[in-house]
Simulated assay, not measured.
Amino acid sequence: MAIESLPLDSAIVRTLSNISTATLTTVLLKKGLRNVWMRGTIPIDDQQTRQVGRAFTLRFVPAREDLATPESWSSPISTRAAIEAMPPGCIAVVDAMGVTDAGIFGDILCSRMKKRGVAALITDGVVRDIQGVSGTGLPVWCRGVAAPPSVAGLTFVNWQEPIGCGGVAVFPNDVVVADADGAVLIPAKLLDEVLALATEQEQLENWIMSEVEGGAALPGLYPPNAENKARYEAFKAGGKKA
Rank of each mutant, 00 (worst) to 15 (best):
V94T: 02
A55W: 00
L138T: 00
P162Q: 02
K31C: 14
K189L: 13
K240D: 13
T25N: 05
G164L: 12
E211M: 10
V212P: 00
N18M: 09
G164I: 10
I122C: 13
V176T: 01
P62Q: 13
K30D: 15
L28T: 05
L138W: 05
I77T: 12
A216P: 03
W37M: 11
D107N: 12
G125V: 04
R112S: 07
M38A: 02
I208L: 06
S5Y: 07
P76C: 05
T57G: 08
G144Y: 08
I186E: 05
D179A: 08
S75G: 06
S5A: 06
R128V: 08
S74M: 13
L218E: 13
L109V: 14
V177L: 00
A82Y: 05
L58P: 04
D181Q: 14
W73T: 13
A226Y: 13
A234P: 10
L29K: 10
L33M: 14
N158C: 03
I19N: 02
A226F: 09
D66P: 08
T100Y: 10
C110H: 05
P62N: 15
T123Y: 01
S134N: 09
D66C: 11
A120M: 08
Q131G: 11
E211Q: 11
V157M: 11
P139Q: 04
A147L: 15
I186W: 01
G220Y: 08
L6V: 12
E233W: 07
G215E: 07
C90M: 02
A147G: 15
A92W: 06
E205R: 15
E202I: 04
E84W: 03
F156M: 01
P187F: 04
G239D: 07
C165H: 02
I42S: 13
Y232L: 13
S78F: 05
E200K: 15
S74A: 11
P76S: 03
E200M: 06
G106S: 01
G53I: 01
N228H: 14
S75E: 12
V127H: 10
V99L: 12
A183K: 00
P162A: 03
S17F: 04
